[in-house]
Amino acid sequence: MHSIPGRRLIMGLFLIFLLLPIYWLVNMSFKTNSEIVSTMTLWPHTPTLQHYKRIFTDESWYSGYINSLEYVVLNTIISISVALPAAYAFSRYRFLGDKHLFFWLLSNRMAPAAVYALPFFNLYSAIGLFDTPWAVALAHCIFNVPLAVWILEGFVSGVPREIDETAFLDGYSFPRFFIKILVPLIASGIGVAAFFCFMFSWVELLLARTLTSVSAKPIAAIMTRTVSASGMDWGLLAAAGVLTIIPGALVIWFVRNYIASGFALGRV
């Protein structure tokens, strides 16, 4: 690929721009609160692990991470399992209303969460799911299921149709063909779709916060608690923030070549 003059400089500057705020957060998380408030230091002069220790030992803190992971994993499983057959149908068949349905799914991916916050609150209170991981997992389906369908449809279309036909000629039933042949063939696609469901559920806060109060509260909502009578506990806030970045940072590596296609709803 042919690049532009000065590309190293541009790239370097942009990466610094991206990393500097994150560095500042990490830096703060290792400082004591007195150091944060009293002096401006570019690196922690008296490094401490007290904030991380507090998060890992205080149940009200680490339970937030567990709650978040719980609904994120639930949501990923629901999204992928309902999206897989649909992706196959959209990729292989034409049926009544298919194009409209596809558009309707897309429009739900774009729907603003703020519109749904209140009706979801009513809905899940009415069916007794309020303040459970299920409520958040189902609520996040509104944008994750369409995304999963769009991504998986692209991957299923990449599998030549001859494979289906051969399998059916060999006497495979549809469910057996689906599990034994199709799923292994698009395993990487399923991985990518799962990653994106995981990610979008992990970064969303408005719905997750609205649908929980005590027992299923996500970590992102618990972070607001650092405001206390003695002022903000900046170090603790920073440490909690750093810990929410880690899961994403760990899995990026595995999907780095597919990131663009996932963000483009499987359309690159």
Partner: peptide, 11 residues
């Protein structure tokens, strides 16, 4: 490049 995209929005 992908790192900021994966940070929870409130963070």
């Amino acid at each position: 490049l992908a790192l900021p995209l994966l940070i929870p929005w409130n963070v």
